[in-house]
Design a protein around this nucleic acid. Sequence first.
DNA 1: CGAAAATTTGACATGACTCAACTGGAGTGG
DNA 2: CCACTCCAGTTGAGTCATGTCAAATTTTCG
Lengths: 193, 193
Amino acid sequence: MSKDIFLAYIKKHIDLNEAEESIILSKIKERKYLKNQFLVQQGDVCRYVVFIFTGCVRSYHVDDDGNEHTVSFSIENWWSSDMGSFITQKPADYNVQCIEPTSLIQFDSALMEELFETVPKLERFFRIISQNALVSAQRRVVNTFSKTARERFEIFREDYPELEQRVPQYMIASYLGVTKEFLSKIKGQIARE
Amino acid sequence: MSKDIFLAYIKKHIDLNEAEESIILSKIKERKYLKNQFLVQQGDVCRYVVFIFTGCVRSYHVDDDGNEHTVSFSIENWWSSDMGSFITQKPADYNVQCIEPTSLIQFDSALMEELFETVPKLERFFRIISQNALVSAQRRVVNTFSKTARERFEIFREDYPELEQRVPQYMIASYLGVTKEFLSKIKGQIARE
DNA sequence: CGAAAATTTGACATGACTCAACTGGAGTGG
DNA sequence: CCACTCCAGTTGAGTCATGTCAAATTTTCG
């Protein structure tokens, strides 16, 4: 059952006993979204952090010129949210939208706190997750500064080989920080070699 | 006393009782570094996370072409480390170097785990800290993609007004993701207005 | 004071963007 | 099942933001 996926995922990072497992199972439930549905819209307050069973979700910011900038793609066994908005309860900087039909667990603040109280180990779990995400985000900053668009694209392909198939090219461009036209030219250039 | 700064800082995020405070105080001690000393060198394994009382520390990556890319500046009441290396015990991607005489606390893995065991609330504390840092890092990625170098510089000035005085310009340039020459031209342009 | 480091400035080069036109599916509906 | 539209992707010409390199100037500090 899909909730077990979640337990298995937690147990990659911390140990859980039976009691803790059943507490967690009792508090979470699966929810489904359709392709193109929004989990958060930029400007709204983000009420949930989600854990994804199946599907794919994109977080992106639309700037003053109307250009989209993809912050992250989240797929099976990963998290998504506008954390800044979730924590501060201020308007979200990002849209969070399903780009496939998606099945997930939604955690609101109350549920989070309840889980932390009843299973304090989960603080550790989320600490570890957050630290890992921070390390990736910093690496992305450095890559953006030190690599050309083409290199970043090649790294992206290696790091997330499945995503290139699942995600429209213009979204990948906006994740890499280039225009869709330029990414297309890069692909052309690679193909010609 | 400077260790109290650390307690006060923790207490901005979580509550501590007397017992917890004294446990923490008993386990930490101040250490001083001179200007230009390295806390970590790229390629070494990072053994510490540090909390800074006074001074300033820079994390930066040197790429294959020999160019520096600043990941972060850390000053009073903030953290520094190569988290990726600290967590995985693999060679560090970053240099972490004092750019002022710096007084700090060093936490190695053993001390971290000991603190987490004796004061479990600290897991929560570090979760919160990490989440906040993640939010900033993501915002930085989006800014890099959506703003010009000049805009990024102006945002930097607003966000960290003190740093511009304390940090050499070429390091700021490498934090913003531009060359030192180009940042100089931006400043010239701003001054001329 | 003198040497090294940091910053400024200018000429030139280029990676990446803009805009506009074109191509090629993937629906949709008549 | 064809015609039409819509959206994604491609391609090319021209432009711009930023980089490179080298020289000149200023600041820092032993």
